[in-house]
């Protein structure tokens, strides 16, 4: 394992390139609509899982009601495009901004609380969202849902499925790029310091509350972005897409992939999206097997598949050792 990680750390750029190449080639190799659909849904979930990892992995707050934020993005995009005829670039942006605003609205009064309470707040918020989605009939059409959300299109040209796949792929890569930049900056250090010990962070000049609100806003923005894309892609949304059960799937992906590791989110999201598909022939037993796998995974690697690994740190430690310095 150690050697594997060191090898990975050393060749991280190449590994990323290969993974990127696989992601690009995928729809060319697997042209069946079903497989492209699975690939696209994987990437939507990757985006959600990345956003949740920012909050849960880097900030240390377990986001229990993530489907709520995902749903805000989806509904924002759906309403703006069906009622006001906005184009998808505008609705994606609006979905992200709207969700971030809601995130800030939820975060401002509650982020002074300890993390475990914030987890419950997000859960309650998810249920409140669903109640509103179900009951604000004039806006959301209630439980009948919003049908006919226009597919991604530019200048009247409607994107075929495979092009939508590349759109979400681009969004995922953009998101990873941005999160990576933030994590490896003074802001990222501030975020991790607050997670590790908010009192010490505060004593070192970091305002924990401000960092929590900022992180919450960033995380919710990406969740909203994913939701907005999802609405356009799937074409029909109703409140049952954004339940607490969906939230638990999101958090399972993130934790199983590994907290504080972006590749972990990719892995967690893809495996928990593909797994139910693979298990489909098992019919009734499928969900049971899924649950058992979740348990087994937590028994074998409770910190998640890639949890606790920091390739940058591994690389740095290797550089010192190969540099001839003898300290352990």
């Amino acid at each position: 394992m150690k050697q594997f990680l060191q090898g990975w750390a050393k060749n991280e750029k190449w590994v990323n390139l290969v993974l990127f190449a696989i992601a690009v080639v995928y729809p060319l190799l697997f042209t069946r609509a079903y497989l492209i659909n699975i690939g696209t849904l994987c990437l939507v979930n990757v985006l959600v899982s990345l956003s949740l990892n920012v909050l849960t992995g880097y900030m240390g707050i377990t986001g229990l009601g993530w489907a709520g934020f995902f749903g805000i993005g989806a509904y924002t995009a759906a309403i703006l495009s069906t009622k006001l005829g906005w184009g998808f670039l505008a609705t994606l942006l609006a979905g992200a901004v709207m969700t971030a605003l809601c995130g800030i609205l939820v975060g401002l009064p509650t982020l002074k609380l300890s993390g475990r309470y914030v987890a419950i707040v997000t859960m309650a918020f998810c249920e409140i969202c669903r109640a509103l989605e179900t009951n604000l009939d004039w806006l959301t059409r209630g439980s009948r849902g919003i049908p006919g959300i226009p597919r991604l299109a530019l200048f009247g040209f409607r994107f075929p499925k495979w092009m939508q796949y590349y759109v979400i792929l681009a969004l995922v890569i953009l998101t990873m790029f941005i999160i990576n930049r933030i994590i490896n900056s003074r802001l990222g250090r501030g975020i991790m310091a607050v997670k590790d010990d908010d009192i010490a962070a505060s004593a070192m000049g970091v305002n924990p509350f401000r960092y929590k609100v900022m992180t919450f806003a960033i995380a919710t923005a990406f969740a909203g972005l994913a939701g907005a894309f999802y609405a356009h892609y799937i074409g029909f949304i109703d409140p049952s897409n954004f339940t607490f059960d969906q939230s638990t799937i999101f958090i399972s992906m993130t934790i199983m992939g590994g907290l504080g590791n972006l590749m972990g989110s990719v892995l967690g999201a893809i495996s928990l999206t593909v797994l139910p598909e693979i298990l489909r022939p098992l019919l009734d037993v499928r969900q049971i097997v899924y649950g058992v796998l979740l348990i087994v995974m937590m028994l074998v690697r409770p910190q998640g598949i890639l949890g606790g690994f920091n390739l940058k740190h591994i690389r740095q430690q290797m550089s010192v050792r190969s540099g001839g310095e003898k300290h352990e």
């Binding site: 003074r186 250090r189 991790m192 590790d196 010990d197 962070a201 070192m204 000049g205």
Partner: peptide, 18 residues
């Protein structure tokens, strides 16, 4: 009270934060 998931260097770099 150090930051356990950060390296020695990062701990000190955090000091420069303000």
């Amino acid at each position: 009270r150090l930051f356990p998931t950060m390296t020695v260097l990062e701990n000190v770099m955090l000091g420069v934060h303000c």
